[in-house]
Amino acid sequence: MSLSADSLKRIDREIAKYPADQKQSAVMGALIIAQDENGWLSSDTLAEVARYLGMPPVAVYEVATFYNMYNLEPTGRFKLTICTCLPCGLQGALAAADHIKARLGIDFNQTTADGCFTLKEGECMGACAMAPVVLVNNKRMCDRLSNEAIDTLLTELKAKA
């Protein structure tokens, strides 16, 4: 598996933001780009990013495992991350999570049989006032999710898949 020319171009843009001898500063950006392309970060991808940035592979692995928005395993088409930290939990996030589980028939860290959804537990997303919040594929934040709003969201995503 190797990164496309387009991804490499985007990684070059990240690298250009830092001094020439500090290419490794671009590692987080590069991993995001690699994940956008492949959906997840295989060890081959990590090794390729390491080679590209002139870093030891294990140093890239450290970064990729430290942040939980990097997927080190393949996920479904849509990764739903629901915040279950304390403030969200007090505002109904746990019930919302139960609703999603019931609708999709999966538990946390599982993927639906059709490969459409993966459900993850997330850490604070800085949107406690708008709980419950769900992050779709690390990019789209959906807040104040009542059960109805969740149903709408799932139907909408399902239609896209």
Binding site: P56, P57, V58, Y61, T65, F66
Partner: peptide, 22 residues
């Protein structure tokens, strides 16, 4: 001069490993 071991994960899940398969 070569970083062959690293600490992956965080918090309680940190562990010292070599890169996958190395």
């Amino acid at each position: 001069g070569v970083m062959e071991l690293g600490m992956i994960g965080r918090g309680e899940h940190s562990e010292i490993v070599a890169f996958v398969g190395q």
